[in-house]
Each structure stands twice: as structure tokens, then as C-alpha cells.
Write a protein that binds this DNA or RNA. Structure first.
Lengths: 160, 160
DNA sequence: TGACAATGATTAGCTGGCTAACTATAATGA
DNA sequence: TCATTATAGTTAGCCAGCTAATCATTGTCA
């Protein structure tokens, strides 16, 4: 979370420029806005998902499972795709399992592996959440028209 | 942190569209990119600051103090500007104080208040960090030229 | 083949946020 | 005036990430 409410204004930055002549004003502005907006959105998302008793970490795990044809995956695959450590996935899976949103089963051919399966209950939860999520997102982005959104996506893709 | 490495591609999203017809493709794409890029940047920033033995929370506190003419502020002002709770600022200040980067003093006229002052050591730390930070930021943003950065800032400002 | 490396998963313990509950002081208004 | 409300700050305890260490199993190559 990086919610810095008072982004530096021109005056504040120009005070810094005095001391740090290598400051590129627009880069810093863009950087701060990206980090701040990302944090604002993430906080709002967690608030929305909280209404369904879930966090964004657990929600993404469920989505990754649903994306899969047979709705199953290895924990280590989930970790890689989700961008978290295996330790974190281990905890997420334990919770999701105890809540009945996923099930686990072992792999015969390789006993180290551990298959995670989305349950009916997990799928139902996603079916409840997703419409609200899509509404939430289109509401957040509604101050940009379609063309502006396309431009934004292109610019962000250059950075990612 | 929201680092979802595998953003949904067209195929994945179109599978979801089947089930959730109110999905606005471009809004979701833009939303995910903002949150993801913000998280990536935040993680990199923390790695950079870690080289100076500091976190982004403590760093922002120091910057907010330096921005002030007399380099001093109330904890509650810091909390508001930084976008964290008073409880969090309380912890940050305790740490920064124990490390010698700030000092505290009490306010005569209102004994509830508690003045935080940037020390020479804190200012020196910032003077060390900022050039590296500016280089770091301009490097992150270098795949966009100046005009593109301006466009990006305008779009993000519409959303913030 | 058998030692060592690689892989998959878990656990323990850390950290930086948070909320809720609290203390102390100041401001307000019947 | 004095009871109530508001403000400033702290503490305790929660949570979701993390790293490092560990265990079990599988793969590799001299």
C-alpha cells in the first residue's frame, strides 16, 4: 500500500530540484500516480471482496482455477501465475480448503505433487462475485472513454 | 501486492464473457494493468530503499518532513498526508526516532500534540537516497518518451 | 547404483500495514 | 461550570504477504 495523499506539487518538486538536479519531473509524476492509483484500486477491490468474505489473494487463486479447463492445478503453478511465493500459496490453499472453496488431491505418478480443484461452492462464489467486480471496475474506469482506455492500456503495456 | 503474473488473455476473458455478459473488456484490462504495474513498481521501490535500510513507509515520512519549511510536523498531519492510520505513523515514528532520523518534542500550548523534526542524519539519508531514486524512476519510465508520459499523467489524473 | 541436486510443499517466525480500545488533553455548550 | 464531545497519540492484537529452513520425493550423472 502506497497511498501518499499529498503528491508533491510543482513547488514541492522544484524545491527538490534545487538539491537534486537529475530529477525528471514528468517521470516522477507518472511513477507516483501509477503507484498511488494502483494502491487505491487495490484497497477498493479488497473492500469489495470483503463483502463476500474473501481477500484478493484467495479470489485470484479461485479465478486461476476457473480459468483452467478442468478447474485444477498444482500449488506451485498457482504461485507462479499469481506472483506470490509457494509459502503464501500454501496458506491460501489451506484457508480456501477449510472454507470448502477448493479440494485437494494427491498425484499418483509424482507423490510430491498436490492437485487443487475448484469445488462447486468455489465456482458459485465466483459466479456471485464476478458481476459485482465487473460493475465495480467499469465504474472506476468510467471517467475515461473507450479510446482513452485503449491509449492507457497501450502506454501501460509498454511499461509492464 | 497484486502481482498476478498471468493477466487474462483474450481467450481467458472471452470464456468469462460467456458467463458474465456485463464484462467490459477494456475496463478490466486497464484496471488489471494499473494494479499490477503499481505493485511491480512498489516492490522494486522497496528493494531499492532496502539498500539504504529503510522501507517506503519510513521514507515517505522523511520526505514529508523535508518538504516542510522548518522540517517539522505533527504525527497526525503526517498520517493524513501519507494516507496511513495514526497507529501506523505511531510505529513509523518510533522506529525513525530510534534510528536517529527524526527527533520528537512536545508542544507547550497543546500537550496532546507531539512535534516530529527531521534530524541532520535523516536529511543526510534523504540526500543519499534521492539521486538513486530519481535515476531508478527515470529508468523505469524510459520506455515512454516525454509526450507519452504527459499523456499517461493526464489519463491517470482523470482517474485519481 | 548411489550420492547429490532439483522440485513440490509446508512450517516457523518476521514485517508493515490495519482496527479497536484506550489515555490524556482541549474545546464546547446547556 | 462541568459533562460531553472532539482531538492527538499509543498499545494490543490481527492479517497477508515474505524469507529461511525443512521434509519428502524425483531426477541426474559419475
Amino acid at each position: 500500500m502506497f497511498l501518499l495523499n499529498d503528491l508533491p506539487n510543482d513547488k514541492a518538486l522544484s524545491n527538490f530540484v534545487k538539491d537534486f538536479p537529475n530529477l525528471e519531473f514528468t517521470s516522477v509524476s507518472a511513477f507516483l500516480r501509477i503507484v498511488r492509483l494502483g494502491s487505491i484500486y487495490l484497497e477498493k477491490l479488497d473492500k469489495l471482496l470483503g463483502q463476500y468474505g474473501i481477500t484478493h489473494g484467495r479470489w485470484i487463486t479461485l479465478i486461476l482455477l476457473k480459468r483452467q479447463k478442468n478447474s485444477q492445478k498444482l500449488p506451485s503453478e498457482l504461485a507462479k501465475q499469481q506472483g506470490v511465493t509457494k509459502a503464501t500459496i500454501s496458506g491460501l490453499i489451506k484457508l480456501l480448503n477449510s472454507e470448502g472453496y477448493i479440494e485437494r488431491s494427491s498425484n499418483q505418478s509424482d507423490k510430491r505433487k498436490n492437485i487443487v480443484i475448484l469445488t462447486k461452492k468455489g465456482d458459485d462464489l465466483l459466479n456471485n462475485i464476478m458481476p459485482a467486480y465487473y460493475e465495480f471496475v467499469s465504474d472506476l474506469l468510467k471517467s475515461l472513454n473507450h479510446d482513452e482506455q485503449e491509449v492507457l492500456i497501450k502506454l501501460l503495456d509498454k511499461l509492464i
